[in-house]
Structure formats: C-alpha cells, structure tokens
C-alpha cells in the first residue's frame, strides 16, 4: 500500500557500463530495479570502451527508465524526486544519466538530487538492513578501494584509499596476464577456490598506522612469478597462483578493515562495491568479524554490482536533507566524496 506521505525516488545510474533505473520507497524499500548490462558489447575489447558505453547508454536510457516505472507500477505523478549519479565515472557515460534526469525533472516539475556513486554503493546495504553509526564501509570495486567512516547519514570521511591500483583493477590485470576473458575478477575468484595459496607473494601493509592500500606491487609480482617460471621452464598451476594472489589481496583488505573497525569503535561494518561479490573475500570477512561483537553487512551479489537502487537509496538521504541539484548539474568524473 502506498501512503500519501511515502517518499518515492527514481534513481538513475550510467557511470560505467550499466544503464540502470530503479524506484525506492522511503530510502529503504526496493520497488523496482532494472539494469541493462553492456558487458557483452565490451567483452571483445577486453575492457570497457568509453565511446561505446556512451552510445549504448543513449540507446537504452528511456527504455530502462520506463521499465523501472512499469515494474513498480509508478507514474511521474507518484514520484517525490529524481536521483542521479553525478560522479565519479566515465564522463561521457555520466552525461547521459545526468541529462536524462534533468529533462525528467523539468518535464514533470520534480526535485533533482545528485548522488556520489560510492555513497550509492554504501547505501545499497540500507535496502537490506538499517545502518548503525558510527559505521565503517569497505568499498571495493574496479575503480575504488576505500575505507570510509560515517558518523551519520550522508557524512563520509575517507580514512584509507588505494595509492595506485584499485583492488578490482589488480584483479583485471592479473586476469589478463593469465589470459582469462574479461571481466577477469570472477574467474580468479573461481580458480582461487580450486587452488592452494602455495606461492609466496607480497602484502603491502604500508606504514604501521596507515589504512591505505597498494596493489600494483602485488600485480607486478604475479607477472614476474609467471615470467621467471617460464624462463626456468617450470610449470605453475594457475589455480594456485590465483589462490595466492587472492589471499594476498584479501589478507590486507580484511586486516585493515578489522583494525579500523576497532580503532574507530564502529557499530557496523558494511562491505560494498563489485568486488564485494568475491566469494573468498566474503568468507574471510565473515570469519574475521564472527564473534567480534561488530555486525558485518554484505549486500547480496546483485546489489554489489552497479545498479540504480543504490543511487535512489543514497539520494533519499540527500533529498531528506534538502539538498537539490539545479538544471546546471553536470557529470563529474572526479567527484570528491567528502566534499559532495
């Protein structure tokens, strides 16, 4: 039943290679969620081609939004606001969602709310369970590896971030070295499950008190290991190499997340982003936090990858705070989370 006082937000997300629209009620309840993935179009190029992503977004945008409204049995008159990803992401891709959202806001006299993509990933979790503050979020994806403290809704403090490659990026690069098809992350995860971490690879802990990450050294080490083995005519079990690489990534992610959770005395730890779909990471985090007294939340797989439900959920918080975007809103590929 829809109450008059219910808040209904249409979310729109086009920051990378998914064209997505969704409706969320009162910031917590998923009404509809539509994602049109372009992964098949980009596979043959071994990665996302920005120009091709933008072309797909233009073709899909109205179809996806219509489907979200139809599935939710919602009309423009029912909506409270439109929330759209402002950044970060691919600039040409962001522009499609932003301009479509502005056109809808004008045509139907609806408030417009700009959302930070990472805030969206964190808020995906609110569709599953309430958030408890202070909260620690570990955001891991193809473009991000960050530890974020939230004292309250809509407040973000980055306490650690990657100094070079994002975790997902390292996965993709290692996958390419192993000649795995794009996107490589899930393949490595699967191979790791079948192999044993027998190969010694580095873990970049950085300074003793740092929550920052670094994965480029690890990636180089994997490449060198393969290269040296080839020179010596030794066979390396690719499953073992995948398991060793994955263990090295996960050791650092889990340890730093656990340390930060204790140091900041948080009441909840949220894991978000595409790499949160990684089976190995999920298991190790669950082990680590079991019995720690700090509840751990990992959204289901379909909420970890890019979607617009998370944008609508994060948009609800901004909407309630009275934040509004104007018709001048632009896609911002380098949008800063703390300043936004």
């Amino acid at each position: 039943m829809m109450e008059l006082t219910d808040e209904l937000i249409l979310g729109i997300e086009t920051s990378c290679d998914e064209t997505a629209a969704a409706i969320v009620k009162n910031g917590t309840e998923l009404i509809s969620n539509v994602v049109s993935s372009q992964i098949e179009s980009h596979k043959r190029f071994g990665g996302v081609v920005p120009e091709i992503a933008s072309r797909h977004h233009v073709e899909q945008i109205t179809i996806v939004i219509e489907e979200a409204l139809r599935q939710g049995n919602v009309t423009f008159e029912d909506l409270s606001a439109i929330a759209v990803t402002e950044g970060p992401g691919l600039v040409g891709a962001l522009l499609i969602g932003v301009n479509a959202a502005k056109a809808l806001a004008l045509a139907h006299s609806l408030p417009l709310v700009a959302v930070h993509h990472i805030a969206g990933h964190i808020y995906a979790n609110r569709l599953e369970e309430p958030m408890e503050f202070p909260l620690l979020a570990l955001v891991v994806s193809g473009g991000h590896t960050e530890l974020i403290i939230m004292e309250e809704h809509g407040s973000y403090e980055i306490i650690g971030e990657t100094r070079d490659d994002a975790a997902g990026e390292a996965y993709d690069k290692v996958a390419r070295t192993l000649n795995l098809p794009y996107p490589g992350g899930p393949h490595i995860d699967k191979m790791a499950g079948e192999g044993k971490p027998t190969i010694n690879l580095p873990r970049a802990w950085l300074e003793a008190d740092s929550y920052d990450f670094s994965f480029s050294g690890l990636k180089s080490s994997v490449i060198n290991t393969l290269h040296n083995a080839k020179q010596r005519d030794e066979a390396i079990n690719p499953n073992d190499l995948a398991a060793s690489f994955q263990e090295s990534v996960i050791d650092v992610l889990v340890e730093k997340t656990s340390r930060a959770a204790k140091a900041y005395g948080v009441k909840q730890v949220v894991v978000a982003g595409g790499v949160a779909a990684n089976k190995g990471l999920r298991e190790r985090l669950q082990e680590k936090f079991e019995g720690s007294g700090i509840p751990l939340s990992i959204p289901p797989l379909w909420l970890c990858t890019d979607n617009a439900a998370m944008i609508a959920a994060a948009g609800s918080v901004e909407y309630q705070k009275g934040k509004r975007a104007t018709m001048k809103l632009n896609g911002n590929p380098g949008l800063d989370l703390e300043a936004y």
Partner: peptide, 11 residues
C-alpha cells in the same frame, strides 16, 4: 539527443 528523447518519451 538524450535530452530530446527523454523529454519526448516522458511527455
């Protein structure tokens, strides 16, 4: 085109 088609479809 994005603005035009979004306006047209939604109106």
């Amino acid at each position: 085109v994005t603005i035009a088609k979004t306006l047209a479809w939604s109106l």
